[in-house]
Design a binder for these strands. Structure first.
Lengths: 350, 350
DNA sequence: TTGCTGACCTAGAACGTTCCAAAAAAGCCG
DNA sequence: CGGCTTTTTTGGAACGTTCTAGGTCAGCAA
């Protein structure tokens, strides 16, 4: 029997006995203290290897009253953008010696509340939360009151001073509009995204401002709110095309919606990028492989994740709960889905 | 100041003092014991509410020598299939009162080893691992020797008796081949997937057997190994079409590869589903929204995840480390990417 | 009154670490 | 060798729970 049953975990005390030192010395070795004699250190390490010792972080955290666990609560892990974000954050935490745990809420505020409770019970040192849709504004008050560092990813919580890390939604939407307007589009729609989404509100704001600046009337623009998914995109497109004077291009809430829009267009025999311009938002990995390759507002997900992690880490380390918001840079990734200048055919259709 | 600084966590003792009982009684209330007087219970609960008490699972686990944490180690969370699997598993664990933590290894065995170490240090009660590519066969021996229940998801580890939960790879590939052969295809390729992948080997096996059964020579079939991604798919397609006698249809390692193949076909002006049949594997959510909607081997991811969770839970609860493998059912989801009978045009091209 | 029962409650020892204060050992110097 | 500093090592009290073994108390029968 090479090792024991689940019960008999080897402890620091057994290591101490095996190495002929006290448990304090073992503890010192474990944390790489300078002040233990190299020969002793070696003896202890040998015992650790021989007995297959596994450090018990729970016990350590209990004593130290602070843990190295950090949590990431993600509203939808099956959304590629969120998954990329989670992976980026995870990497940063891991590099900093923390143990990141990911949990998914599937857009359920109830589940989210449970997960937050569980994370607190585990004694997380900090938390990055990409809030579920419909999260009440006071959902995190307990967390904040307890002094646990929290950073929000993407979605702001109204009336609270919880730092938010997210892309520049207004500028992104503006860049998209400017591109389309520059190509000669006069009827530009905003498609997809839930109407109660804060992110959507921000993108919408940039969208409208840019339209106005381009001399177009924002109130005339089609604004179709749907789920931020492929289905939602297809659906929003139907709404748009049903107008008396349908748009010739669209800024989409995100890439998923844009894919749905392209799909819907193709189903109707309209060629996205040639007959109808589509611009997404996020620049998920898939965008470049789509057909046509998607023009989209590129967001540096990894950078955003890293930044969020840094903020939390700083708050943990300084003990001060005062990070600032971070608005990530965005740029237009021009690919084929928004075509070149408005084509003859598009104009004729109009 | 509604609540204190990060330091002063409220403990069971303070609750006890506030409620005028002993800490033992509070503990009893916490776990819903029958034998505490309703009035007392109420008093304790009130104190818990008033003082904003948060249960300390670390301390509890320390005393009980078993935790309710379970880990899920996923080889690539940005792969939608894996993400769906993770979410399914998470749900099952959560429902069973365990606290599931997800970690991503990004296909790195090194990272995987670190993550496993961390999970052990946290004292996980069990683990579901979707092993990273290139995981050495002895990577989990320590875990198993320590008596920690482990179930592998999807990928088997050779020469070890660690239970595996995964779809019926052989049957899936067979169904795909039978479909294509039934439609009249005689030259069928197998595209994508890393050549050292165990999963690929299984699918390949089913593929070859089915070809043979259909009276086709497996050794003549194009077999192009690439990354299991869109890029990989496009690449594998190039290999296939470069043949002297190119295939008219392909079974793909997974849906991502299939999407890549469709993309590649379209780039070359070949219409997937009409001029070339494509069948995927997994049936990710996206498959139905693809263009054309992807015919694929449907795997019940959620079911698989649930099953894996059940196995681990049973092992945890019985303390016996002896779950069986589970081979999940698969079926062919017929959509448009494999078209109908081999078309005129395809035959002419050949 | 006493003794017994059952319902309810509790003291105190664990659990595996960390950390403080201080002891022991080792060097150094004359 | 004694006295001093410096380096290494150590005992034991925490940390916040759980759990065992037993304690208290009211009610009731004798």
């Amino acid at each position: 029997m090479p090792a024991g049953s689940p019960k008999d975990r080897v402890t620091i005390i057994e290591i101490a006995a095996a190495a002929g030192v006290s448990k304090s010395t073992v503890s010192l070795v474990l944390k790489g203290s300078e002040s233990v004699h190299p020969a002793t250190r070696e003896r202890v390490n040998a015992a650790i290897r021989d007995l297959g010792y596994v450090y018990n972080r729970g016990a350590a955290n209990l004593r130290r009253a602070r843990s190295n666990i950090v949590g990431m609560i993600i509203h939808d892990l099956t959304n590629p953008f969120c998954a990329e974000l989670a992976v980026g954050i995870e990497r940063s935490f891991q590099a900093a010696g923390y143990v990141p745990f990911i949990a998914n809420t599937a857009e359920s505020p109830v589940r989210q509340a449970e997960v937050i409770k569980l994370m607190r019970e585990q004694g997380v040192a900090g938390l990055i939360i990409s809030a579920a849709r419909g999260t009440p504004n006071d959902a995190l008050d307990g967390l904040v009151a307890a002094g646990i560092p929290v950073v929000l990813a993407m979605r702001r919580l109204q009336g609270r001073r919880i730092p938010v890390v997210g892309p520049d939604n207004r500028l992104g939407a503006r860049l998209a509009v400017e591109r389309l307007a520059g190509l000669g589009h006069r009827r530009i729609a905003f498609l997809g995204g839930y109407s109660d989404s804060v992110v959507r509100a921000e993108r919408m704001e940039g969208f409208r401002a840019a339209l106005a600046d381009a001399g177009l009337d924002p109130d005339q623009a089609v604004n179709a709110a749907t789920a931020p998914t492929r289905e939602g995109g297809a659906q929003a497109l139907e709404t748009a095309l049903a107008q008396r004077n349908p748009p010739t291009g669209a800024v989409c809430f995100n890439d998923m919606v844009a894919f749905g829009v392209c799909l819907g267009l193709r189903r109707r025999g309209i060629h996205p990028g040639r007959d109808f311009a589509v611009i997404g938002f996020d620049d998920v990995q898939e965008a470049v492989h789509a057909d046509p390759p998607l023009t989209t507002i590129a967001v540096d997900v990894m950078g955003l994740g890293e930044r969020a992690a840094q903020s939390v880490l700083k708050m943990i380390e300084t003990g001060r709960n005062n990070a600032e918001d971070h608005v990530g840079a965005v740029h237009l990734a021009v690919r084929e889905s928004c075509g070149s200048a408005v084509s003859e055919r598009t104009e004729k259709r109009a």
